[in-house]
Design a binder for these strands. Structure first.
Length: 801
DNA sequence: GTTCTAGAAC
DNA sequence: GTTCTAGAAC
């Protein structure tokens, strides 16, 4: 006979209030948390919250007639309660796997085992423990701090592969309240969806940000894959233990399958997942509809590609969507995924409308893929028409801005404007267009039944799609971390979150400005701090003319200096008539500046080289009468050379006038030749040619720099921003401006060099240089259209005219 | 431009 | 305690 304890009594009271009805699946909820984290309060709050379900709280601290008992007593008590049809809270610390393992075994086909992790800051737990005077376990007063600290050092977060079907992480009071509400509302015939919910903190002492990048600390997603590992077990653990784990994993997968199926019915599958752990991509089958690709072959490729992607990117979940549940390709993929033992937590199929993926499917998805046509145009029926239609004019325009066409096997990420109905209704932030191989003779690029080529292209298409998705996720996670890290206790909804990412991207908010700024309007952000930043939103390359500075007039002190310098130029007022607004502003601002810069001794090195190249022959790649070509002493990329003018007195961009146009063109053409040479050696290289608005070294020099920015010399914000903000003036633009206005704009606002670090491809913001460098090493998002236009970028695949 | 380093941030 | 930034010195 089990011991009487207050918890049981409490159940008896609450059970009286339970209304009749068939009992559904029971649940064992294992509380995980340090003393003082609020486990007992949590249980009591749920139990006292309503008549929805019969609960029994097992509290080890009071199980023996109000005193602390043993684990065995707790197990017995829990078993008895389950036999009585009750659900059970295991109210003990359960901080490591060993403490939990016996309780997990309480699970069965009729009993789900959940964990609720109260991962509150240690200081909060200690403070509560120290203050309380009535703790059941007598852990209070001064000794509490030492105990809590010791326990937290050993803590080990629960994972699904321990046998839990659902794990909820709570990091603050809001999370706790939300979890309490969830369990309070859980009716006797209802089940909660499986998976990880809420955000897991770190259970190590390492810096989370860095470790996430190094993939050494995986958030829950890592644990999800543990289940797969278990099936192919190479575990060093004993065989008995191994068997148990595998069996339990299987149970979880069954549970999750049910959860996934539940999604089709509109249950909240993945609602929690979307909030923080797994990022979901919904995608249609590519090429199997209008492009008539063989379904058998396609399904093999799809399953292979998914397997590869899930192994490569640990934090993603993929959902293949087709309108009809009778879809042949969906069935084929579903069967093959099972055979391939793809983790059902991370891949499943969904029969429904991809444009209603969240409102109908409730999949918590922020990115969808579109099987598009080569013109990236709406129409053609099928999923392409449906997605373009649902995305509205905003999607069409955003796509058009990115590219005019797309090649088979490639994908294109489009950031969805907030005006798009897909964004507003579904919370979709990105659409990834993909073009697959075409086997339909009536459509362009018909492959004439060449399945060798077709399969290759289809593989490439899926691979490109999943890579692009991973890049988007990566960018979003950084933005999320930026916002989260500024206010650890904060929590916000999925919708807030996606909007925040979007706004952050849109408004280029400095991570330093913290959360509240993330949602400020464009005007207020701009007026407050970034008055001088370029206005262009989204994929900004800092080219917006409205805030650029046309510094030529003021730089030399007054107008007479300019007139003396450039006889072709009539006057500054003439320039202002045709120059953009920003140019005029700068002219006025700079008019009182000192006339000539004093260059430090170290800043004279290039000047010396230009004047006496023969003395520096070892460092020089090429010498002519006009220019010297040399490697940058501290290259900021794999290839970084300087085309140095030899004209004495021409120190920097703001000195350049119309008379220098032939020289500027020559420098550009020599730079281009060198870039092409490098590209012949390495076809993957992309180059950009341009000038620093305000160079550190005297003597006009053109940078020719490869765009992977892989260099140990790229060390700080100034280095990055000098090549990746409007501070960097593309040679093609400079030449055009000189041709049209007689001088080139310089963007010498010092904010440009200290502005937030953003990826030059996807525009994601990064908190520091190491993180940015990691990101740019993996980001595969195509360069923005602005960069791709007018030959600003030079590569083996582009025209550099 | 880089190096060095104090101190902020994590 | 370690990582990272930013300012001073050169």
């Amino acid at each position: 006979m089990m011991e009487e304890n207050p918890a049981v009594q409490m159940d008896a009271d609450s059970s009286k209030e339970v209304e009749g009805g068939t009992l559904g699946k029971q649940v064992v909820v294992m509380m995980v948390g340090a003393p003082g984290s609020g486990k007992s309060t949590f249980c009591n709050d749920v139990v006292s919250g309503g008549p929805h379900r019969l609960w029994h709280r097992v509290c080890q601290d009071s199980i023996a007639n109000g005193k602390a008992g043993t684990k065995l007593q707790c197990l017995r008590s829990a078993l008895d309660a389950l036999k009585d049809g009750k659900s059970v809270f295991i109210d003990r610390c359960n901080l490591d796997r060993e403490q939990r393992v016996e309780f997990v075994k309480l699970g069965s086909p009729q009993v789900d085992v959940h964990a609720v992790v109260l991962d509150l800051p240690a200081r909060v737990c200690i403070s509560r423990s120290v203050k309380r005077t009535d703790h059941e376990g007598n852990l209070q007063g001064g000794k509490a701090a030492a105990v809590v600290n010791r326990m937290l050092q050993k803590k080990e977060f629960p994972k699904l592969n321990e046998g839990f079907s659902r794990i909820t992480f709570c990091q603050n009071d809001n999370d706790v309240q939300s979890a309490v509400d969830t369990y309070r509302a859980l009716g006797p015939s209802e089940s909660l969806p499986s998976g990880y919910f809420g955000q897991k903190g770190t259970d190590t002492k390492v810096q989370v940000g860095i470790m996430k990048f190094l993939k050494k600390v995986e958030a829950p997603e890592g644990s999800a894959s543990d289940g797969v590992k278990c099936q192919n077990s190479t575990s060093k653990e004993g065989s008995k233990e191994k068997d148990t784990q595998c069996m339990e994993t299987e149970t979880i997968q069954i549970n999750n399958k049910k959860a996934a199926e539940g999604g089709k019915r509109g249950d909240s599958v993945g609602g929690g997942i979307s909030s923080n752990s797994l990022h979901t991509l919904a995608f249609p089958s590519i090429s199997t509809a209008d492009f008539q690709f063989n379904h058998e072959k396609a399904s093999d490729i799809i399953v292979e590609s998914i397997d590869e992607a899930l192994n490569k990117f640990k934090n993603i979940r993929l959902v293949m969507v087709d309108l009809s549940s009778g879809s042949r390709i969906l069935s084929l993929v579903k069967d093959k995924a099972v055979k391939k033992k793809l983790d059902p937590l991370r891949f499943f199929t969904f029969a429904g409308n991809i444009t209603l993926i969240n409102t109908e499917g409730n999949l918590g998805c922020t990115v969808i893929a579109n099987a598009t046509n080569w013109r990236l145009k709406p129409g053609g029926g099928g999923v392409n028409a449906a997605i373009f239609n649902a995305g509205g004019e905003a999607l069409k325009l955003a796509t058009k801005e990115q590219a005019g066409t797309i090649s088979p096997g490639k994908s294109l990420v489009v950031s969805l404007p907030s005006t798009s109905p897909l964004f507003k209704r579904e919370g979709i932030t990105h659409v990834i267009h993909v073009l697959g191989p075409n086997m339909n003779p009536e459509r362009p690029n018909y492959l004439k039944n060449d399945y060798v080529k077709g399969c290759k292209i289809l593989c490439e298409a899926y691979s490109s799609l999943f890579e692009s998705f991973a890049s988007v996720v990566h960018a979003q996670r950084f933005q999320k971390e930026s916002c989260n890290s500024s206010e650890p206790g904060s929590s916000y909804s999925h919708k807030d979150h996606t909007q925040r990412n979007y706004f952050d991207k849109l408004f280029r908010v400095d991570p330093k400005n913290k959360r509240e700024d993330c949602l400020e309007s464009l005007d207020s952000v701009r007026n407050k701090k970034y008055k001088a930043l370029p206005l262009e939103c989204g994929l900004n390359d800092g080219r917006d003319m409205r805030h650029n500075d046309f510094a030529g007039c003021g730089n030399h002190g007054d107008e007479s200096v300019i007139l003396e310098h450039n006889e072709n130029m009539t006057s500054c007022s003439d320039i202002t008539n045709s120059a953009p607004q920003g140019m005029i502003q700068k002219k006025n601002k700079k008019i009182s500046d000192s006339s000539k810069k004093n260059w430090s001794s170290w800043a004279q090195a290039l000047h010396q080289t230009a004047m006496n190249p023969e003395k520096h022959k070892d460092d020089i790649l090429h010498i002519s009468d006009d220019v010297v070509v040399l490697n940058d002493l501290y290259p900021k990329a794999k290839k970084h050379i300087l085309i140095l003018s030899r004209l004495n007195g021409l120190d920097e961009l703001r000195d350049v006038r119309k008379e220098h146009l032939p020289l500027m063109r020559k420098m550009h053409s020599i730079g281009l030749e060198w870039a092409k040479k490098f590209i012949i050696d390495d076809n993957s290289m992309v180059f950009r040619l341009g000038y620093h608005s305000v160079p550190s070294m005297r003597q006009l020099h053109l940078h020719v720099i490869s765009q992977e920015f892989d260099s140990i010399h790229l060390k700080n914000k100034k280095h990055w921003n000098s090549f990746n903000t409007a501070f960097f003036r593309d040679s093609v633009d400079v030449i055009k401006e000189i041709d049209e206005h007689g001088m080139a704009m310089v963007n010498d606002n010092e904010n440009l060099l200290s502005t937030e670090l953003r990826c030059h491809r996807c525009r994601s913001a990064h908190p520091n240089i190491p993180k940015l460098k990691f990101h740019i090493g993996v980001c595969k998002v195509p360069f923005s259209d602005t960069l791709l236009q007018n030959g600003r970028l030079v590569s083996g695949h582009l025209n550099e005219t």
